[in-house]
């Protein structure tokens, strides 16, 4: 997490292989990133679902385009995922006909069908109403608990960070850098009791201190 404008999205786009760094290299597990690939998938701030394709076509796109699954196989797996995401009956709808939270679930299905090794979520729940947002957070955590897939979750909100995160990298400064790494030593699931515990407050204080420490602040930025 970090103040808006500090370069979180840019860094994410570099990891995904959409944007090349001006200098230096990026590597995942020692392998340099040279292009976009289905091993690292990103869920964008604004929905990137193709609004001219039905929900099912959106989800099937990856395995079909890459040729990893045969047509019928891709369809079966997509339907299975949609069913699991509670979207089975919406498979023939177009994205514009879905609510914000449902669209997010479709995007997750669209990514997960490709078995990525890294999921990059760029403030995925921003713009959702408070209730939907809470449900989506819970939902993703459950999903994550099942798959244990590495997730880079970008957020600009303290509470969200503490609900979702295991390890928080605080970005800031100009030029931006990773200012601090904070381990969130809170058990999952993060129940209301956990989120009221002494350790939660401690971590929150630590995180706030990192965000607001003068050296890492961006002039005019907001936390």
């Amino acid at each position: 997490m970090g103040p808006s404008g500090c370069g979180k999205t840019t860094l994410a786009c570099m990891l995904a292989g959409y944007v090349a760094p001006d200098a230096g290299t990026l590597a995942i597990d020692g392998r340099p990133i040279t292009a976009a690939g289905p091993d690292r998938l990103m869920v964008f701030q604004e929905t990137a679902l193709w609004h001219w394709m039905t929900v099912l076509d959106n989800v099937m796109f990856g395995p079909r385009a890459a040729g990893t699954l045969r047509g019928g196989e891709a369809r079966r797996k997509a339907l299975e995922l949609l069913e699991r995401f509670g979207l089975g009956e919406f498979k023939d709808r177009y994205p514009n006909q879905l609510s914000g939270g449902m669209r997010r679930r479709v995007e997750l299905a669209q990514a997960l069908i490709n078995n990525p090794r890294l999921m990059i979520l760029d403030e995925p729940f921003r713009g959702l109403d408070v209730m939907t947002r809470g449900l989506m957070q819970e939902y993703y955590l459950k999903l994550f608990a099942e798959s244990r897939m590495t997730t880079l979750f970008i957020s600009s909100e303290l509470e969200e960070t503490l609900v979702m995160g295991e390890r928080v990298l605080v970005m800031g400064g100009a030029p931006a850098r990773i200012a601090r790494s904070i381990d969130v030593r809170l058990p999952f699931p993060r129940t209301p009791q956990v989120l009221a515990s002494e350790r939660y407050l401690e971590t929150k204080r630590e995180l706030m201190a990192a965000l607001y420490s003068p050296g890492h602040r961006i002039e005019g930025g907001s936390a």
Partner: peptide, 12 residues
Amino acid sequence: KEHLWLARSLGA
């Protein structure tokens, strides 16, 4: 650009 990026990521 996200529409194109996503397709590229998915190996199209």
